Amino acid sequence: MTYKLILNGKTLKGETTTEAVDAATAEKVFKQYANDNGVDGEWTYDDATKTFTVTE
C-alpha cells in the first residue's frame, strides 16, 4: 500500500510517499525521514486517506 506524509515543519514543508505493508511500518519510515530532516512535531494519521501529517 502507498502511504503519504505531509510535512508542516518550521523550515521544511512538503510531501513524500512510501510503499509499506501496514501503517505501523510506514510510520517508522516517515518518523525516520522527518528526524533526518530536522522536523519534530505533533503527528496525526488519517486511515481513510492513508496520510500521516507532522506539524511543528
Rank of each mutant, 00 (worst) to 15 (best):
1 M>A: 13
2 T>K: 11
2 T>D: 05
2 T>E: 15
3 Y>Q: 00
3 Y>V: 01
4 K>P: 01
5 L>D: 01
5 L>H: 00
5 L>G: 01
6 I>T: 05
7 L>K: 02
7 L>F: 14
8 N>I: 13
8 N>W: 09
8 N>Y: 06
8 N>Q: 12
11 T>P: 04
11 T>V: 14
11 T>Y: 15
12 L>K: 05
12 L>C: 06
13 K>S: 11
13 K>A: 07
13 K>W: 13
13 K>Y: 10
14 G>I: 11
14 G>K: 15
15 E>M: 05
16 T>I: 11
16 T>E: 10
16 T>G: 04
17 T>S: 10
17 T>D: 07
17 T>A: 08
17 T>R: 12
18 T>H: 07
18 T>M: 07
18 T>P: 01
19 E>D: 11
19 E>F: 13
19 E>Q: 13
21 V>F: 10
21 V>R: 10
21 V>M: 15
22 D>V: 03
22 D>G: 04
22 D>S: 09
22 D>M: 04
23 A>M: 14
23 A>H: 08
23 A>D: 08
23 A>L: 12
24 A>Q: 13
25 T>W: 09
25 T>M: 15
26 A>P: 00
27 E>K: 08
28 K>R: 12
28 K>L: 14
28 K>A: 14
29 V>W: 09
30 F>K: 00
30 F>Y: 02
31 K>S: 05
31 K>L: 13
31 K>G: 03
32 Q>W: 06
32 Q>H: 07
32 Q>V: 11
32 Q>L: 07
32 Q>T: 09
32 Q>A: 15
33 Y>T: 03
33 Y>P: 00
33 Y>W: 05
34 A>P: 00
35 N>D: 12
35 N>R: 10
36 D>F: 13
36 D>H: 08
36 D>P: 01
37 N>H: 13
37 N>R: 15
37 N>A: 15
37 N>G: 06
38 G>W: 06
38 G>Q: 09
38 G>F: 12
39 V>M: 07
40 D>A: 13
41 G>C: 02
41 G>A: 02
41 G>Q: 02
41 G>M: 02
42 E>G: 07
42 E>S: 11
42 E>I: 12
43 W>Q: 01
43 W>L: 03
43 W>C: 02
43 W>D: 00
44 T>I: 15
45 Y>V: 02
46 D>N: 10
46 D>H: 10
47 D>Y: 09
47 D>G: 08
47 D>S: 15
47 D>P: 10
48 A>S: 15
48 A>I: 08
48 A>V: 15
49 T>M: 07
49 T>A: 06
49 T>N: 11
49 T>H: 10
50 K>H: 13
50 K>P: 00
51 T>I: 08
51 T>M: 04
51 T>K: 03
52 F>P: 00
53 T>R: 12
53 T>Q: 08
53 T>K: 06
53 T>H: 06
54 V>P: 00
54 V>T: 03
55 T>A: 05
55 T>V: 14
56 E>P: 04
